[in-house]
Nucleic acid binder design. Structure first.
Length: 482
RNA sequence: GGCCCGGUGGUCAAACGGUUAAGACACCGCCCUUUCACGGCGGUAAUACGAGUUCGAUUCUCGUCCGGGUCACCA
């Protein structure tokens, strides 16, 4: 068996959605697992909107994700060009070969003729029409005459009228369809350009693609693809159809629905590695119990038998969890690098210890953009609601807070070295000397310093992060407010 | 509507004729603890329905229901 070659063939829309990225990932993994090649082909034949910079979005996303292509528009390769709009010369010629061998034919029917002969019917909310094969049996002379007269034409694929076409899919197994269900689809449009389906088959063959990985919306048109391969006498590729990624039971995840794209997730503070890991798991399951994998590890672990046939609903909660696992696994330096921009959104002052903040934040961060609100009390000094001093567990309230804060103030005034360790031992020594529970001192302290019920880290870390001046000043005003 | 595909807890999913039907997320409880997290322990929760094949069906077959896809000179 030859080298595995897969391709990712996106249209440049300026946007990489999750389902697309997953298809790219699977195509990449299938190739790399067997030491094959992953090819990038840009399908830019969209008549109409070309989005500025859209191709760069594709390049950048793939590179970010570590899905490096072996051949593509930017790096070339032996099967170029890799931009569909630059391959336009081929197709008509290939279509004519099919006409010659009887697998396709010229059709001169105009839109108007079709409308009057076979009006569209509504079926399930869609307007449907099946071509009736009107031009199938035109004599050679008739065809020649019409061509010579310059009458516009399309070229249609001639589907067998009987029998069954079966193709094999690596995910779905054998899929069969009766040939009479197949329409004589257009291969070459009246403007001489190929249809998507035709261009795909020709390109995939010319590029030596061995495994076609794509969404399962193509499952029902695959028999037509296979018939085309047969008509050319080419060996069809292996097919790997993937069920879609859904937003809910009914809708696919899509830009149209306002769903997050890869870029949106990254902007929100998700780690690329975590996103890839999660989407790999969406619709595919590993052999064992493990579920945290880098792309490199997936390259070995991936197995097509684990690809699921049914749609998978995108679960933001699970993504969050996996992201949190990746965040916790970050080195303190890497965490700080990622977190600082978000910390800075909330903390403008410079006189706090950012390393301490990072340390308390790291185990509490699910995605980076949830950092700023956790830190809202660092710059602002809100009024303290005396209710916050109430704790049944530690038997504290506004009354007990005063002596606790005063004692803490005295102890901290005497301390010069405001590290986590020294603050910790100072305060615990105080706790011991007073014969109270830790929370009796530390609870009210946290409230006095932050003005909020819940903080990342405890009183000790907050004090060390804020430093002596700020801490003492906050405790004093909290006492004054009692 | 025709055709194609699918249907295991709320979600992702394992089990590919024999299991007390895994695991993860979420949720709930307990422990740890200066709050919240992290971590540890435990819990609630599923084979859509009905026939058939079989000694035995989540697993095979058929039907029903439900969901998705597709039926363009769009890609």
């Amino acid at each position: 068996m030859g080298k595995v070659r897969t391709r990712f063939a996106p249209s440049p829309t300026g946007y990489m959605h999750i389902g697309n990225l997953r298809t790219a990932l699977y195509a990449y993994l299938i190739a790399k697992k067997d030491g094959g090649d992953f090819i990038l082909r840009i399908e830019d034949t969209d008549q109409g909107r070309l989005v500025e910079g859209a191709v760069d979005v594709i390049y950048n996303t793939l590179k970010d994700c570590g899905l490096y292509w072996d051949e593509g528009p930017d790096i070339g390769g032996d099967y170029g060009p890799y931009v569909q709009s630059e391959r336009m010369d081929n197709y008509l010629e290939y279509a004519k070969k099919l006409v010659e061998n009887g697998s396709a034919y010229y059709c001169f029917c105009t839109e108007e003729e079709l409308d009057s002969r076979i009006p569209k019917k509504e079926e399930g909310g869609e307007m449907i029409r099946r071509y009736d094969g009107h031009c199938r049996n035109l004599s050679k002379e008739e065809v020649e005459a019409k061509l010579a007269a310059g009458i516009p034409y399309v070229i249609r694929q001639k589907m067998p009228s009987e029998g069954v076409t079966t193709f094999h899919d690596l995910v779905y197994g054998d899929v069969s369809v009766e040939n009479k269900e197949l329409e004589d689809q257009v291969l070459i449009k009246s403007d001489g350009m190929p249809t998507y389906n035709f261009a795909n088959v020709v390109d995939d063959h010319l590029m030596g693609i061995t495994h076609v990985v794509r969404g399962n919306e193509y499952l029902s048109s695959s028999p037509k693809y296979n018939l085309l391969y047969e008509a050319f006498g080419w060996t069809p590729p292996e097919y790997v159809h993937c069920a879609p990624v859904m937003k809910d039971e009914h809708q696919k995840l899509s830009k149209r629905n306002g769903d997050a794209s890869y870029q949106d997730l990254v902007a929100k503070g998700y780690l690329t590695e975590a996103v890839l890991n999660y989407i790999a798991l969406l619709g595919w399951s590993p052999k064992g119990e493990r579920e945290i994998y880098t792309v490199e590890e997936l390259t070995h672990e991936f197995d097509m038998s684990g690809i699921s046939k049914s749609p998978a609903i995108f679960d933001p909660e699970k993504l969050k969890h996996i992201n949190a696992e990746y965040i916790r696994a970050l080195s303190p330096e890497d965490f700080k690098k990622h977190a600082m921009p978000f910390i800075r959104q909330a903390v403008k002052r410079d006189d706090v210890d950012f390393d301490i903040l990072c340390e308390v934040l790291q185990p509490r961060t699910e995605y980076f953009s949830d950092i700023p609100e956790k830190l809202s009390f660092i710059d602002a000094r809100p009024d303290i609601d005396p209710e916050l001093y109430n704790s049944k567990k530690f038997k504290t309230n506004a009354e007990t807070a005063r002596p606790a804060l005063e004692a803490s103030l005295t102890a901290l005034e005497a301390l010069d070295d405001f590290t986590v360790e020294s603050v910790h031992s100072t305060l615990l020594a105080l706790v011991e000397s007073l014969g109270v529970k830790n929370g009796w001192i530390l609870g009210p302290l946290r409230v006095a310093i932050s003005g909020v019920q819940v903080t990342p880290g405890g009183a000790v870390e907050l004090i060390a992060a804020l430093g002596k001046n700020e801490t003492l000043s906050r405790i004093r005003s909290a006492i004054a407010a009692l």
